[in-house]
Design a protein around this nucleic acid. Structure first.
Lengths: 159, 159
DNA sequence: CACATAATGTTATGCGCATAACTAATCCGT
DNA sequence: ACGGATTAGTTATGCGCATAACATTATGTG
């Protein structure tokens, strides 16, 4: 691949990151959220009470980031953190009622953002988009060793 | 669009941002660069001596960010900043020889990253990728008034 | 010309996310 | 059952990027 094409791709990804995040920030601000927090709320809405380590895994960010995100969302009353009974190291995070109400609003914003983002693209391109983006992501993912989650193959627990 | 699809798109963009940036960080670290700085060097390599305001425009970031980026790259000896003759407010930024040498290395890394990023995708998808990503970007770009703008012409595809 | 307005850049501050270093709890092989 | 390794979480620190407030220079009207 020549440099021109390579740069076009890298630069496009970089700019998309900046602008999509900026737009999300603008849409989430009226809800009192900063970008990144919405992902945590949505994950809790999707999975119910969750351990912080799993949250970090789902959101693709590191434990210290999860600590700060949960701390702030707890301070604003949208989530609740309790020590797990079965594992005294773990902290279980769950939505409060306020958090659930806010998450409903977040979902509306999230749909609006996605629609705005893909406006003007052919339906088939939009349909393929998540898969293409996920492929790009796992290609550069050093966390999960680029493994594809598609197979759903999990080593069975030896017990 | 239903929430599932919307979330798949937004989440995919968010994760791609994190991972692509993280991978870039890993590849640039041996060169002594942090992600974001390479874009500035490449822009200077492409356009020659440039005013900071134009740099911010090209990189899609704000004046204070440009100030910090240029300050650090100047401190590391890769760029030089001089006051413009024609406009005493403006600061002209240009590559030093060290900066040019480093940029050569950056280009190699940049090509490698792009190739790694699009690995496994059909060639035609890769060919369309920059345009698709740029469309997504301008759809959510609140900086330059929404849509087309850059070159003053329609992106492409004269039917 | 004078003066309001715009444009360039800087400082201060804040958020998200990262890594490094640390504590505390759980697991596991001997 | 003991003691090393693994895992969950926190604190400290740093970088990139953003906005807000500000100083300085250019510009374009009356």
């Amino acid at each position: 691949m020549d440099f021109e094409r390579a740069d076009a791709i890298n630069q496009a990804i970089r700019l998309l990151s900046l602008r999509h995040r900026a737009r999300a920030a603008g849409l989430l601000a009226p809800l009192g959220l900063h970008p990144g927090q919405e992902a945590l709320l949505l994950e809790l809405d999707r999975s119910g009470p969750t351990i912080q380590a799993q949250l970090g895994d789902a959101l693709g960010c590191e434990p210290p980031s999860v600590t700060l995100m949960t701390r702030k969302l707890e301070a604003s009353g949208h989530i609740r953190r309790t020590q797990a009974a079965s594992d005294k190291r773990a902290t279980v995070v769950e939505l409060t009622e306020r958090g659930e109400a806010l998450t409903k609003q977040v979902k509306k914003v999230w749909r609006a953002l996605a629609e705005e983002t893909v406006a003007g693209l052919p339906a088939e391109t939009v349909a393929e988009l998540p898969n293409v983006l996920n492929t790009l992501t796992s290609n550069v993912d050093t966390r999960r060793s680029g493994a594809r989650a598609a197979t759903g193959k999990v080593d069975k627990a030896p017990r």
